[in-house]
């Protein structure tokens, strides 16, 4: 915009601001902050078009979505997003910090969905799994005990820089049973992790890192998201002893009613199985509809986190435990990582 354009548009803009009519018409767009990457693309492809078509309201996406960003937004009182993506333990933390608007489930009027994806303050919109993966040509691990055994399974490791996606696996490797994981024995997990620390090349912060590092032969074994692995030639993975978790959509506190109303309408679209099928094409992760397996067919669904066989092989992340113990564990964990 050059100076002349600016001079011309300034009075026009003030007219819009002053006109009560324009105000009464409600927002013409809402903003959604997601975690970016393919996840963001799946939202853009699946849920935004039907919403915009129905209500004539555009959805502007932005990434990434950290807890810090949400907190800054709510505490400064400048609420510029109607919807925000959070992980299950950050959802718990955000509730504790009173950063969230209560959802109006009557207004959302959801299609059938998994009850565990329904929270007073958030809608679980995506199931994702954290699993072990390796490069073909290396010995295939069957369990975390193998992954942690660097003598019998030599090679460099790549693990998550977040304790939420690491501690439980260390305990499984140390012999804890799948159904006895929580409450996590943090000290025991840290002891086990010390034993593998020097073999970990990279502690990843974004989910795209481990796959890339496997492809580049920079590491041979990695903890990674399940989505997209089966499309990678030369990379293997197993859901065995994997962990499934839910990603949430929330509404930042301090929303004006018109925007909140639109957010509820958007969330309804997120529960529609037909829309979730579009998302599943972009990214093989399950939405919150139990009908998805039937719609996609068991065969197509076998690489999805909520396929029956996969659910049986995995355990569920325990967000309640992390909410209670997160701050304490984070301290121990950053000590561990900072002295890496």
């Amino acid at each position: 915009m050059n100076r002349r354009d600016f001079l011309l548009s300034a009075p026009a803009a003030s007219l819009i601001v002053a006109s009560p009519k324009a105000f009464a018409a409600g927002p013409t767009s809402i903003r959604l902050i997601d975690s970016g990457g393919t996840t963001g693309e799946s939202i853009a492809a699946a849920y935004i078009p039907p919403f915009t078509e129905k209500y004539g309201v555009r959805v502007i996406r932005e990434a990434p979505s950290s807890l810090g960003k949400l907190r800054a937004m709510v505490e400064s009182g400048r609420i510029n997003a109607a919807l925000f993506e959070l992980g299950s333990s950050t959802l718990a933390q955000a509730r504790e910090l009173n950063l969230l608007e209560k959802l109006d489930w009557a207004a959302i009027n959801p299609d059938p969905m998994f009850p565990e994806a329904r929270d007073d303050y958030g809608m679980g919109y995506q199931y994702f799994s954290t699993v072990m993966a390796w490069r073909e040509g290396n010995k295939a691990p069957q369990a975390w005990a193998d992954f942690f055994n660097v003598q019998r399974f030599p090679g460099k490791r790549c693990m998550s820089a977040y304790p939420h996606y690491t501690l439980a696996f260390a305990l499984l490797a140390d012999g804890v049973e799948l159904d006895r994981l929580f409450p996590l024995d943090v000290n025991r997990a840290m002891r086990k992790l010390e034993s593998i620390k020097s073999h970990v090349s990279v502690w990843w912060k974004t989910g795209t890192q481990p796959l890339q590092l496997l492809k580049d032969n920079e590491v041979q074994y990695a903890v990674t998201w399940s989505a997209g692995i089966e499309r990678e030639p030369g990379i293997r993975s197993t859901f065995n002893q994997g962990m499934y978790d839910i990603a949430w959509l929330v509404v930042p506190r301090g929303q004006d009613p018109a925007t909140k109303d639109l957010a509820m309408k958007f969330l309804h679209e997120v529960t529609v199985a037909k829309n979730q099928m579009v998302a599943a094409k972009v990214l093989p992760l399950s939405g919150n509809s139990p009908q998805l397996e039937g719609l996609l067919g068991a065969k197509a669904f076998q690489s999805f986190p909520t396929a029956k066989a996969n659910l049986q092989a995995q355990f569920k992340q325990n967000a309640q435990w992390w909410q209670k113990n997160g701050p304490e564990v984070n301290k121990i964990w950053s000590n561990f990582l900072l002295n890496a």
């Binding site: 950290s66 807890l67 810090g68 960003k69 907190r71 933390q93 910090l97 820089a161 977040y162 970990v200 090349s201 990279v202 502690w203 990843w204 912060k205 701050p327 984070n330 950053s334 990582l337 900072l338 890496a340």
Partner: peptide, 21 residues
């Protein structure tokens, strides 16, 4: 690779993840 955290990275963790502002 997450193994050489400098102050900038530490601050990022404290602000964005553990919320210890």
């Amino acid at each position: 690779g997450g193994k050489v955290p400098l102050l900038g990275n530490l601050l990022d963790t404290l602000i964005n993840e553990t919320s210890e502002w």
